[in-house]
């Protein structure tokens, strides 16, 4: 029996990398400020000391170059983790990600595999401006060949990151900076969480709320409020968007007949749009009302805090959407 200790998400992620680097000497970590500084949020703290500068590399600000290098290393026997500080910087490496990382295995008829994990920390809603605020997650969901992970708790973050590092396919791993200090139970004993398995974070019978990243916590708060009004909401956290656990979402809808999908991306062709489409196609006859989306507005993120509040999904907006279904 493992003791139920509590640690925060940054610590959980650190443990995941540390355990995997101990287990597998081909695992290396590269990125801006991941070494001496231990990451701008301390997620890779202590890894340089333990594994040395060969395996924990501070890179120059050359996202195209070092993501490409991560791919080159991955196809030749290493198992790299590359950190891109914020998703807003991923476009600098987009050519390598979309044209190589995602496709090399397919384009070489299975001769090459790309066991590369790219980690990046979302800083949406922090007031740093529109180029330090995006997740860009739908870009990667739309790119065949990439797996996409979106954890919301320390437990999920650790188990999913370990799975990502071991996965032979390329993985985009989205962390949310504002969750780094959130504590949660994480067993001391080793565990892995398989991809493509959603987690029901709260059970309910009247309404399904699907949410990702920090919005899972907003959805849980909304569910608490709704319960006071007699609406029992079920909160489903897909945890990975590729592969997506359609079954859990659809089964939940079959039970509750109503669904609100919450997304930290603009609504057009976004994560919520995709989940809504799947539900419409595969569970239409179980719906008792329209599928509701709560996504970010289709605008760049402003800096002024009152405007940010208007732009991003939150507990209140989820409750408003939910009530339209009753």
């Amino acid at each position: 029996m493992s003791t139920q200790r509590e640690i925060n998400m940054a610590e959980a992620l650190n443990e995941a990398m540390r355990e995997e680097m101990r287990r597998d000497p081909t695992v290396i970590l590269m990125g801006e400020d991941v070494g001496v500084l231990g990451g701008v949020y301390g997620v890779s703290k202590g890894l340089l000391d333990e594994f040395g500068p060969e395996r924990v590399r501070d890179t120059p600000i050359s996202e195209d170059g070092f993501v490409g290098a991560g791919i080159g290393a991955a196809i030749t026997g290493l198992n790299p983790i590359v950190e891109i500080m914020y998703p807003d910087f991923l476009p600098c490496a987009m050519n390598q990600i979309t044209n190589h990382m995602a496709k090399l295995r397919y384009m070489t008829g299975g001769q090459l595999t790309v066991p590369l994990t790219i980690r990046s920390a979302i800083i949406q809603g922090r007031g740093s401006g529109a180029d330090h605020a995006q997740t860009l997650i739908p870009w990667f969901v739309q790119t065949p060949g990439l797996k996409v992970v979106v954890p919301s708790t320390p437990y999920d973050a650790k188990g999913l990151l370990k799975t990502a590092i071991r996965d032979k396919a390329p993985v985009m791993f989205f962390e949310t900076a504002k969750l780094y200090l959130n504590k949660g139970p994480v067993p001391e004993d080793e565990y892995l969480i398989p991809f493509g398995k959603a987690d029901i974070k709260r059970e309910g019978t009247d309404l399904t709320i699907v949410a990702i990243c920090n919005l899972v916590l907003e959805a849980l708060e909304a569910a608490k409020e709704l319960e006071k009004e007699g609406i029992k909401a079920e909160v489903v956290d897909p945890r990975t968007l590729v592969p997506l656990d359609k079954e859990t979402i659809i089964n939940s809808v079959k039970k509750t007949n109503r669904i609100v999908v919450v997304d930290n991306n603009p609504s057009a062709c976004g994560v919520a749009a995709e989940i809504a489409a799947i539900v419409a196609e595969e569970a239409f006859d179980y719906l008792d009302g329209p599928i509701m989306r709560v996504a970010t507005l289709q605008i760049p993120e402003p800096v002024a805090p009152p405007l940010i509040k208007l732009m991003l999904p939150n507990k209140e907006k989820i409750i408003t959407a939910a009530k339209k279904l009753f």
Partner: peptide, 12 residues
């Protein structure tokens, strides 16, 4: 005929 508003599951 006048369209009756009915949810998919209700209709089924």
């Amino acid at each position: 005929p006048e369209r009756i508003k009915i949810s998919p599951i209700a209709k089924r």
